[in-house]
């Protein structure tokens, strides 16, 4: 397996362009399997650089009300893990990197090695694992090495220096810095803890750092782009579809918010 991850190349280019990447999160199968594919393609067309495809889970403890509702709708619609893999394949065909974001139990039930094999075959770049810490990740470490997938573990403002260094050492592709202590969801103000956390990560790695939790506007995206390599947005995008009366107006709102955020990451606030 090569040392340089596929997503690393995309980060390199953005860095050369003096901008951050925009990572957009969307649950697989929300509002339907086809609807989620359309949503992700819309996001990419409007300037989202990387898709973080969340595999819906019945008990998403890191997620706020918006993603909970969207995941619930996807599950009620009958979406399966294998559908998520098909969505990865369709969306990755656009050329944009697609990473899976998933709670651990669905992967454990699918089979860790089998999921890694199928995710790689579908063209996925790796996994973001909100409730899997490296301490419990032996199987995933082996499977991700075997299939050349990225591993994005989360770091938090509460992580000790020792844990932060250990966690980052197990990451490949990029590191996910949770900007605040709390669950996902757009907030009026971005946490002051985020820049501090990013600089702590930079002290121990050259890997790109993405910042998530709370970003919802172009101005916020520009501010985060001033110190991070990627701005990760979920709830603000998903809300476009939740709030819309029909698919067409939902995709239209999604296009507009994606474009605003994309403009933000291309014009970092110094």
């Amino acid at each position: 397996m090569s040392e340089r991850s596929r997503i690393g190349v995309v980060f390199d280019k953005a860095r050369a362009d003096g901008r951050a990447l925009l990572v957009g999160c969307m649950p697989a199968g929300f509002p339907t399997v086809e609807g989620s594919i359309a949503a992700m393609k819309t996001m990419i067309a409007a300037g989202v650089d990387v898709i973080e495809l969340e595999i819906p889970y019945s008990d998403p403890v890191m997620d706020g009300p918006v993603i909970q509702r969207a995941s619930g709708i996807a599950l009620a619609g009958g979406v399966r893990t294998r559908d998520a893999l098909r969505i990865v394949e369709e969306v990755a065909a656009t050329g944009a990197p697609v990473a899976a974001m998933t709670y651990w139990n669905p992967i454990e039930q699918y089979g860790v090695d089998a999921f890694a094999r199928d995710l790689a075959a579908a063209g996925g770049t790796g996994m973001v694992t909100p409730d899997l810490i490296p301490d419990e990740a032996d199987e995933w470490l082996a499977a991700s090495d075997a299939y050349g997938l990225d591993r994005t573990f989360l770091v938090a403002p509460s992580s000790t220096d020792e844990r932060l260094a250990m966690t980052v050492a197990h990451c490949r592709g990029f590191v996910y810095a949770t900007a605040l202590m709390g669950v996902t969801g757009a907030r009026a103000q971005i946490s002051q803890a985020a820049p501090v956390l990013v600089s702590r990560v930079r002290a121990v790695t050259d890997l790109p750092v993405g910042v998530g939790l709370g970003v919802g506007t172009g101005a916020q995206a520009a501010a985060v782009a001033g110190y991070a390599d990627a701005v990760i947005v979920g709830s603000a995008l998903i809300r476009c579809l939740l709030d819309a009366p029909d698919q067409e107006s939902g995709l239209s709102a999604l296009r507009a918010v994606s474009a605003e955020l994309a403009e933000g990451v291309r014009n970092p606030t110094p």
Binding site: V61, M62, W104, P130, D131, L132, I133, D135, E136, F153, L154, V155, A156, P157, S158, S159, T160, R163, T167, T178, M181
Partner: peptide, 20 residues
């Protein structure tokens, strides 16, 4: 020491909770 009872137990939590 890591809270495992054989293959069970452990910690499957967001990193934000590990310090606590």
């Amino acid at each position: 020491a890591a809270g495992h009872f054989g293959r069970f137990g452990g910690r499957f939590v967001p990193e934000a909770l590990v310090a606590a």
